[in-house]
Amino acid sequence: MAVSGEAFKAVTKPENHPRSETSKIGVLLVNLGTPDGTDQKSMRRYLKEFLSDKRVIEWPRAIWLPVLHGIVLNTRPKKSGALYDKIWNRERNESPLRTYTRSQGEKLAAALAAHPNIIVEWGMRYGQPSIEQALQRLDEQGCKRILMFPLYPQYSATTTATVNDKFFEALIRMRFMPATRTVPAYPDDATYIDALAKSIERHYASLDFEPELLIASYHGIPQSYFKRGDPYPCHCWKTTRLLRERLGWSEDKLITCFQSRFGPEEWMQPYTDKTLEKLAKDGVKSVAVFNPGFVADCLETLEEIAVGGAEIFHHNGGVNFTHVPCLNDSDEGMTVIETLVRRELQGWI
């Protein structure tokens, strides 16, 4: 059907269309995930979803699934539940990761309050609230543009990529699909490096001893993943190097290690636990460990490092051990999140 010139001008006049600044924009923060409870049923449900992810375990399904269902899910839930119980937020009856991620979302919303058209939600790759649930909430509030932020400074297919997978999988089921953007990894971002440095300096100032060295402990990945092209270790080494330069430290005062290995494969080395053991046996008396790859404290930082790492170091002759908290919802941590979000929203706000 032909449209007259006057009619065309009428419908295309700026005042007849909402400006992009006034249309709803969603910002979705996504972290790894959390079980709903420390009981065996909750842990089994969480571990099943997590360890069934082909991005996390790349073994052939015919080999891995019998192992997962026949061995892992019958033994690991009880053990993992006991570990989570040590760090559980009793007041809210939830994991610290959920507590911090919620707070990050609330503080980001407050920081962006000058833009009432921006709505902030948060979700988890595994567990609740799911990415799909968070996306549905944004859709119900009229968000037709969405910025999704995988909360991982260093890129890995096991983290950033699987969050993207789940996000776009949820979009596939939407009739009216929003315009989308995703925040890229930021291992060398100046704001992030500066925030890490400030948090370390503040923590060191609170100590009654001086650590002889600081271990940057990142979650590991199998060496085979790296050999197949995952850039994650390179991103970790780069973060450490830039942080070392920012602090003005020598190479032997800040080192990179990898933690949380699982299964029989060789993972990226050096291993954090083995390094702590060796340092103590070699006569090092005071160390600090921090986790620059985690934006919020969780099982891997609060239990594996702050508790388990300390036990290993002390058991082998070490004296002073300290764990530097993650950036969490601190002023420095929120500055990083807000800076990256504002950068990626350019053109939309």
Rank of each mutant, 00 (worst) to 15 (best):
I337D: 02
N320F: 04
K48E: 14
P270K: 12
E300C: 03
A310Y: 02
V3D: 03
E201R: 12
R181P: 02
G333L: 04
C234S: 04
S42Y: 06
I172P: 03
D331A: 15
E304L: 08
V72W: 09
K281V: 07
L29D: 00
K253W: 09
K144S: 11
R175I: 09
P116W: 10
D329E: 14
L83W: 00
S42I: 13
W59G: 00
D331W: 03
Q133K: 13
H323L: 05
T335K: 13
A185L: 02
Q136N: 15
M174L: 15
K281W: 06
N89S: 13
T159K: 04
K9T: 00
I146D: 01
N117M: 10
R92F: 06
V30R: 06
K48G: 00
Q269I: 05
V67I: 15
T159H: 02
T191F: 07
I146L: 09
S330I: 03
R137A: 09
G33C: 06
P187K: 11
R45C: 10
T34P: 08
L302M: 15
P77T: 08
A197C: 02
A113E: 09
F50L: 14
K41A: 12
E58W: 01
P35H: 01
M177N: 14
Y204A: 08
D194T: 15
G308L: 11
R241L: 08
V183G: 00
K48S: 11
V56F: 08
F176R: 15
G347A: 01
V72S: 07
N291R: 05
M1G: 13
V307T: 11
R61F: 00
N316F: 15
L68C: 08
K13H: 12
A205P: 06
S95N: 11
P270V: 13
E121W: 03
Y152P: 07
F167T: 05
G26A: 11
R98P: 00
K253F: 01
N164K: 13
E169I: 03
R44E: 13
I337W: 00
A134M: 10
G318S: 06
S52G: 12
R202W: 04
L299M: 05
F209L: 04
